[in-house]
Computed example of a mutant assay.
Amino acid sequence: MIKQNFLNFQILVELLKLSINFCFYFVTRAQEILKDKISFKKANNPPEIIKCLLRIYPIPGYQMSSNLNGYLGTTIRNILKNRRKPEIIKVVKEYGTKMSYPEVSIVVPIYARIDFMKYQLALFADDPDFQDNELIYVLDDPRLYKDFVDYCDAQAATFQVPFKTVYSGANLGFSGANNLGVSVSSGQLILLINSDVMPIESGWVSSLVNIYKSLNNVGAIGPKLLYANGSIQHAGMKFIKCSPWGDLLINDHPRKNQPNFPEHDYKPQKLAAVTGACLLVSRQLYEQVGGLNEEYIINDYEDSDFCLKLHTQGFDNYYIPDLELFHLERQSVSLYHKNEELWQTNRTKYNCWLFNQKWGKYINDKNL
């Protein structure tokens, strides 16, 4: 109990330093959950409050549900729910010939590693698909704005690939950045790809589009993604119970890290979800389900949440084993979050808890 009270005091001190409006829940000696509102004059800054909480507060796996159900998860969820969202300014710039009626809008969020843009454009340069469709880079890292502007000028001149950039003046996270990119796009199909996804050959966008059009009642589809050593990173997603985390459901990537042996069947495989690292969906469906959910912190569970929203409306999601790309998983994120293992682990635990709050019963009821 002394340790618990000390932790609560430590959190309160750190939050007071932030001088921000927030609602904070804490546990008294009687373990009663109380709510106290502390008001300050300065503007709201939810990301810093949340990061402070998750960086300080331990969340043992076996107590995840009780801790997050009781006070910590409720606090964070209320902070996010009641936050004042940053004003979106949408600074848009075109490079090269503007696509008047593109079939596909390819949306790529950029965070930390702007050099990934150069590697992608070098691979896109000889691909006709990138002359006929709309490529949009979303800068989601205000620290890099000046460098990004100069970088775009240089890459546009070097590779001659038409593209558009959009900048909001704020870090919106994975969901917010993708939603921003879609909001300035014009294609009838939306292809979300991470900046660290690299194609193996040309024509992959057209192949993905043709497969999408061939499927009935289709929601979202995603190809096979490989690590740089050729092993499997993504071959669709399923949901399994994680015993170290109190049997909460987590995203499972079947065959992850396994050798990329030839498939027994190259036909599209119907699965509950596919990764947002490379995901194709129609604009109509993207808008119909409200895009990616911005309740999650940074980049966990948004893609499975999105796929389940499609599933609830009767659409099927497919993994495409016949199409392969490389994925340099999370290299940009790790660059800027070194020595913050507790923050990263607790962020994932919170997102897992939130995902289960929203989807646990549905997954179990549907046996997904």
Score class of each variant (00 low, 15 high):
Glu87Cys: 05
Leu34Pro: 03
Lys41Glu: 13
Ile11Asp: 06
Asn21His: 09
Gly70Tyr: 10
Leu54Glu: 11
Ile33Phe: 07
Lys85Trp: 07
Leu80Ala: 02
Leu72Arg: 01
Pro58Gln: 06
Asn5Ile: 10
Pro60Arg: 03
Phe40Cys: 03
Thr28Gln: 12
Thr75Ile: 07
Leu72Val: 04
Pro60Trp: 04
Ile76Phe: 06
Leu7Asn: 11
Thr74Pro: 00
Leu15Thr: 03
Ile38Val: 14
Pro46Asp: 04
Leu15Asp: 01
Ile59Ser: 02
Ile59Ala: 03
Val27Ser: 12
Pro47Asn: 12
Gly61Cys: 00
Lys42Asp: 12
Gly70Asn: 08
Asn67Lys: 12
Lys81Leu: 13
Phe22Trp: 03
Ile79Gln: 03
Asn21Ala: 00
Ile20Val: 12
Ser19Gln: 11
Leu15Cys: 12
Tyr71Phe: 13
Tyr71Ile: 11
Glu87Ser: 08
Gln63Trp: 07
Tyr71Thr: 04
Gln31Pro: 02
Phe24Tyr: 08
Arg29Phe: 10
Asn69Leu: 09
Lys81Ala: 11
Ser39Ile: 09
Lys17Ala: 15
Arg77Asn: 13
Tyr71Ala: 11
Ser39Ala: 14
Ile49Ser: 12
Leu72Cys: 06
Leu7Tyr: 13
Phe9Ser: 14
Arg83Ser: 11
Pro60Asn: 05
Glu14Val: 01
Asn82Pro: 03
Ser65Val: 08
Asn78Met: 09
Asn45Gly: 06
Val27Trp: 03
Lys42Pro: 01
Asn78Val: 07
Glu48Lys: 15
Phe26Ser: 06
Asn21Lys: 08
Val13Leu: 15
Thr74Tyr: 14
Lys37Cys: 09
Pro86Met: 05
Lys51Pro: 00
Val27Ala: 10
Pro86Val: 00
Lys42Ile: 03
Pro47Gly: 07
Ile79Ser: 01
Gln4Asp: 13
Asn69Ser: 15
Arg77Val: 02
Ile76Ala: 00
